[in-house]
Every structure is written in C-alpha cells, then in structure tokens.
C-alpha cells in the first residue's frame, strides 16, 4: 500500500502539481488548502508525511507544525516545509522547530520527492 502524503498549500494549482508529482512517484496524495483544514485532514487520517507551506492566510506553517506536534496522533509525522522564504534564518528556525526539511520555491520536484521519501523511511526505521 502506497504511502499517503498530505500536501498543505493555499495555492491550489501548486498543491495540485505537487500532488501529480507524488502520484507519479507512487504516493497516495491528499491536499488541503489552508492551515486549519490541513490539521483536520492530518488528524482525521494521519498521512505518512506532510509537505507544508509556510505562508498561508489562516495559520503559518510553523503554527500548523506546533499543533501537529502537540497532538499525539500527528506528533511524529515527518513534515517538510516548502517555502518561498529563502532566508537561511528561516531555514534554521524551521529545522529548530522539528521539520525534516526546508525546501524553497522554486523547488526541484526530484528534491521534494527524495526528501519526503527519505523522511518516511527514516521515520519508519525509528518507529
């Protein structure tokens, strides 16, 4: 059974195209277009990994991550940030917050799938 990846991004077209990439790579994909719906989706049916946008209208990616970490059902799900902010400080902050990766837009789709695949594997091993 393929791993399911939750993609959370308020930019729907981007979420969709990322989803196409993941499907092509053999993942099952779920998408959410806001922070709250992302959390709801993750909680309702915890995915294997989450690709999370940082800047969204309702919640920031960091807030979403904190909420997910606070819920035991979602606390351990690997989260990769996909951000337009290229600042190194933002990257540091994301890593400090417990993200498995901090990818910047425009991203290399191969990188994203590689990072997520690695994270799911690492998570499985540690579990």
């Amino acid at each position: 059974m393929p791993d399911r990846v939750l993609i959370v991004d308020d930019e729907r077209t981007l979420a969709r195209v990322i989803g196409i990439r993941f499907k092509a790579a053999g993942f099952e994909v779920a998408t959410a277009f806001s922070g709250e719906s992302g959390i709801a989706a993750a909680t309702a049916d915890p995915p294997a990994a989450i690709v999370l946008d940082v800047r969204m209208p309702d919640l920031t990616g960091f807030e979403v991550l904190d909420r997910l970490r606070a819920d035991p059902r979602t606390a351990s799900i690997p989260v990769a940030f996909l951000s337009a902010n290229v600042q190194d400080s933002a990257r540091s902050a994301a890593m400090a917050a417990g993200a498995v990766a901090y990818l910047t837009k425009p991203y290399d789709p191969a990188d994203v799938i590689a990072v997520v695949t690695r994270a799911i594997d690492a998570h499985r091993r540690s579990a």
Partner: peptide
C-alpha cells in the same frame, strides 16, 4: 518575492511535468 515565486514555481512545475 514570495508571491512571485509561487506562480513561477507553478509554471516551472507544469513545464517540468
């Protein structure tokens, strides 16, 4: 910078697809 990157990424991604 932020808003620019997103559509740019979209263009780039679809082309890439």
């Amino acid at each position: 910078s932020h808003e620019f990157r997103t559509p740019l990424t979209v263009i780039k991604e679809y082309a890439s697809l």
